[in-house]
């Protein structure tokens, strides 16, 4: 979970994680399901929180270039620089899918539910994303 939030380049992943903790504790009695459902539920909360945080960040007024940046910069994702750069080159959907699938360790079906897409669409996004990542990262590793 923490890795996922960091991988999403959240500005304050620790705080976001705290929000997820709190929401899980608060809504726990409403939860109904098994382990897999729980995992999907918690990641859904985390994803929504991360989306909110990203929007808050975007909404903050942009100050002039000569002024110091007020908002906290995104935290460093937990990847090698080459992979980080390659991830940044993906589309938002591709990045979301690979982060949920591999960093979050969710199944295709869980990601599909979470992203409101069909499993086929998720597979397609994943396939293209991995292909692009491999293509971007491999030359750097070799070079």
């Amino acid at each position: 979970m923490f890795g996922y939030l960091r991988a999403r380049a959240a500005a304050e992943p620790e705080d976001l994680l705290g929000e997820v903790f709190l929401q899980v504790a608060r809504d726990w009695r409403r939860f109904k399901g098994d382990d897999e459902d729980l995992r999907r539920w918690v990641f859904t909360i985390a994803r929504n929180r991360a989306i909110d945080e990203g929007r808050r960040r975007q909404r903050r007024p942009q100050l002039g270039g000569s002024l110091p940046e007020v908002a906290a910069p995104p935290a460093d994702p937990p990847f090698e620089p080459a992979l980080r750069r390659a991830l940044e080159e993906l589309t938002d959907e591709q990045r979301e899918v690979v982060l949920l699938r591999f960093v979050g360790d969710l199944s295709i079906e869980q990601v599909a539910d979470l992203c409101d897409r069909s499993p086929g669409a998720v597979k397609s996004l994943q396939h293209r994303a991995l292909a692009r990542l491999e293509a971007s990262v491999s030359p750097e590793l070799l070079g």
Binding site: F2, G3, Y4, R6, A7, P77, P78, F79, E80, L83, V98, L99, F102, V103, G104, D105
Partner: peptide
């Protein structure tokens, strides 16, 4: 590499 990031 992605998976290892998630296992932190």
């Amino acid at each position: 590499q992605l998976r290892s990031a998630g296992r932190q």
